[in-house]
Design a protein around this nucleic acid. Sequence first.
DNA 1: CTCCTGCGCTGCATTTTTTGCATCGGTTTT
DNA 2: AAAACCGATGCAAAAAATGCAGCGCAGGAG
Lengths: 298, 298
Amino acid sequence: MKHLQTFRFIESVARAGSIRKAADDMNITASALNRRVQRFEEEFGCVIFERLPRGVRLNPAGELLMQHYRAQASDLRRVQSQVADLSGERRGHVTIACSQGLVPYFLPAQIAAYRQGHPGVTFSVQVRDREAAERDLATFSSDLALVFEPVHLVDFEVLTHIPQIIHVVMRRDHPLASKPEIRLRDCLDYPHLLPTSSYGVRALLDLAAARGSRPLRPIVESDSFDFMRHYVRHERAVAFQIPIGLRIDPEDEILSRPISTRDVPAGSLLLGQMRGRSLPVASARFAQGLAKALEAIV
Amino acid sequence: MKHLQTFRFIESVARAGSIRKAADDMNITASALNRRVQRFEEEFGCVIFERLPRGVRLNPAGELLMQHYRAQASDLRRVQSQVADLSGERRGHVTIACSQGLVPYFLPAQIAAYRQGHPGVTFSVQVRDREAAERDLATFSSDLALVFEPVHLVDFEVLTHIPQIIHVVMRRDHPLASKPEIRLRDCLDYPHLLPTSSYGVRALLDLAAARGSRPLRPIVESDSFDFMRHYVRHERAVAFQIPIGLRIDPEDEILSRPISTRDVPAGSLLLGQMRGRSLPVASARFAQGLAKALEAIV
DNA sequence: CTCCTGCGCTGCATTTTTTGCATCGGTTTT
DNA sequence: AAAACCGATGCAAAAAATGCAGCGCAGGAG
């Protein structure tokens, strides 16, 4: 859209930190870009960049303005989506920020199922830790977030949530594999792998360990659940993960057992959006389906 | 703001119902305006006006677009107000749609008091019946609405509300003036004046009368409470009004008594805004003060 | 029926706006 | 001290928007 061109340029300048770099990115002359910025500042009635010796930076007014621009651009996309919808096309694009656990099974299946009925709808899936996911919502980079145990919850409007009991992942021949439910202290007897503290699973385990007498002593700390799941094939260790990212496969040499909720309470997997935002049609519809699918799990 | 120019033109066309008329209003040639519309429709990817033999009219897509434009323009004003605020100027403009009852005493006093502390803030006060007030919020023509017994309540976010018992207004020498509280049936024994049905007072009285055995038989129906209040000076009749629009003045030949809540339940005076909207700084501050003042009345 | 009016639309010349190039003055880095 | 970047600006070229005149079309008046 033409009338947002100046905003796009401004955003590029803010990102690049210098008018010349941004001009290069946007295939335009530095002087033209410079003048756009100046003209805008004049009609806006207020300087939005502070000029530094090595470039420029948004000042508070500029930050406010960019927030406005993002909200406005997102709303325009929503309008276009609604218009496309009422002309019967049923097109659209859905962007989701999600936790790692959703990547292997749940989300691909859901998206594929949705696309069966709406082949015109396309998707962006961004794997994010819970903090980054919420940031994506706030900057309108994502329409939806599907995360385990989010942090802030301000500006995060919960569409639905389901409980997820943390599971212990281990080899089939592991001594703990025989029990139907596993105590936290039993896990600590064996080498264990933990996600980094930016993940909800770790937060819950940290909390539980703090209540108990024994500290967590991870042999491996990783930000990849995929890695940890594969690691336990090679050593008689245990990893932790939420069940939505696990598949019960009797053939597999890996299995999982729930950890006792006496030790570690169940966490919540939340589907949410930016508070107060009205989503594009496609995103809203998909979110409905997602919510229904999640609630069917419990 | 320059980048909204096209939207302003489009709005003008929608209002005028014809490109040529709108061109005249906006001091521009019809051909230039026509091309702007066409260019916009092309880049928007969809026609927004239906071409009629005698002019043009917004189609549904166009309606959606104008809604977006209004929201967007209003948000931009909010940003500018916030920017002005953080540069310490404390300027701004507040627009209020209110019921008639607020006009004589309450609102002037509140605005004057606020302007004592914030002389840079200016106001627009629009007297509206409850339906029009809500429409003003929806089209972003007003930031705030202060109305008695609103109708729809969708998209109306209540900031605060206080109960208002309907009062009977009459001359000091009226036979009913001696009672501390008045029954509805007693009023019906005397000539009575009623507001038109677009007002909350009338709605409550209609409801109450429908429950009773005797119908309302107004000698005068008016959309001006001011008129009705003055009328009772000349005839031994009764009028009805909410107490916030009345002043207790022992000198006056007019007085008021509450109607019994056994007959007519207390209505609500609501201060509200458009749901989900974040108001300009000045409006938000003023609304806070207004809410406090209202709550102090009860 | 014809005529007339008001409508949206378009080709062309003109005006206004935007862009690119070269360059200046200043600050940091080497 | 020199080199490397930075934002700002004067000026001419390029691009975009505008005004003017006129087209075809449809509804209303006579």
